[in-house]
Design a protein around this nucleic acid. Structure first.
Length: 292
DNA sequence: CCTATAGCCTGGACGC
DNA sequence: TGCGTCCAGGCTATAG
């Protein structure tokens, strides 16, 4: 689920109850996810206050008292939810209807809004956690490109990335060094909005001097718009993904191309039919008529 | 450096 | 009902 809008939605859902809260207990139910949990994680977290809950790209950043930051990446199937903190030993209980099979990390906290039980669930275990004192220069984040909704992301930066590259523009946008936080869904949607074919070689979007062409100038606002709208909608809910409060996002109802093969192109005045192809090993949805 | 591919995992959808 | 196959929102390592 989690591309930038979903991670931002999760951050917003967690922040009110976690910011200012003190971590009381930490329970690890296995030694690793994609990577081993950081050595000493339980000891480091216990007793710390979560001062700030931030986000960079698709990473959640738990800023802790004492200066360390817990980095969390949700992979493909990770999610956070709040459990029932009134249970004396929540980890041993399996209330009817609550799936616990893949609950890997449980954190109890006490804060201004009372106690909370935060649960990390991840069936595929592609997610991971790390501890750092310098998030920006940590191995996971130090090569990530500009935030798409910030000032550092603009047409000239994108043109610089495209110049001389034969790789499809779609692959370049999925590369987190180009821009932070985009995944398969929002890249497909943004390219459709900008009228750019996903397979188009990135270098053809700039002229011989490396200057952005018209299509590339449409791309930056298209990316910003689709992300803004998705965040406003609470992200996209595929499978049974829910945010921390158990609510469903609804941006999936507004997809123009993603997972809409064989349906009419929704662009006004376009008679195309959405097609599907595979690029960089990923399903790619596009309109063959209005994307060039 | 650039580009493409395999692999990490489980679960759900689908065909037989 | 069961079994096999394919596919899925991400990222990294590796090979050419």
């Amino acid at each position: 689920m989690p591309e930038l809008p979903e991670v931002e939605t999760i951050r917003k859902g967690l922040a009110p109850r976690l910011e200012g809260a003190r971590i009381e207990t930490v329970e690890l139910r296995r030694a690793d996810l994609r990577y081993p949990f950081p050595v000493g994680l339980t000891e480091v977290l216990s007793g710390k206050t979560i001062e700030r809950l931030g986000r960079r790209a698709k990473y959640l950043l738990f800023g802790l008292s004492g200066g360390q930051t817990l980095i969390a990446h949700l992979g493909m199937s990770g999610s956070f939810r709040f459990g029932d903190s009134t249970l004396a030993e929540p980890s041993r209980l399996t209330p009817a209807g609550i799936r616990t099979a893949h609950d890997h990390l449980l954190i109890t906290s006490s804060g201004p809004d009372g106690p909370a039980l935060l649960i990390y669930n991840d069936p595929r275990r592609f997610g991971f956690f790390d501890l750092t004192r310098e998030p920006d220069t940590s191995p996971h984040l130090n090569r990530i490109g500009p935030e798409p909704l910030g000032n550092g992301f603009n047409t000239s930066w994108l043109a610089q990335r495209c110049a001389g590259r034969r790789t499809p523009i779609k692959s370049l946008l999925l590369d987190q060094r180009t821009v932070a936080g985009l995944g398969n869904i929002y890249v497909c949607e943004a390219l459709h909005r900008a009228g750019i074919a996903p397979a188009r070689p990135a270098g053809t979007l700039v002229d011989k001097t490396g200057r952005a062409g018209r299509a590339l100038e449409r791309l930056v606002p298209a990316i910003r718009a689709v992300l803004d709208e998705a965040i406003a909608a609470g992200g996209s809910s595929l499978k049974d993904y829910r945010n921390a409060e158990g609510e469903l996002g609804y941006f999936q109802h507004r997809f123009a191309v993603y997972d809409r093969e064989a349906t009419p192109c929704p662009h006004h005045d376009c008679t195309g039919t959405i097609g599907r192809t595979v690029l960089a090993g990923r399903s790619t949805f596009f309109c063959p008529v209005c994307q060039h």
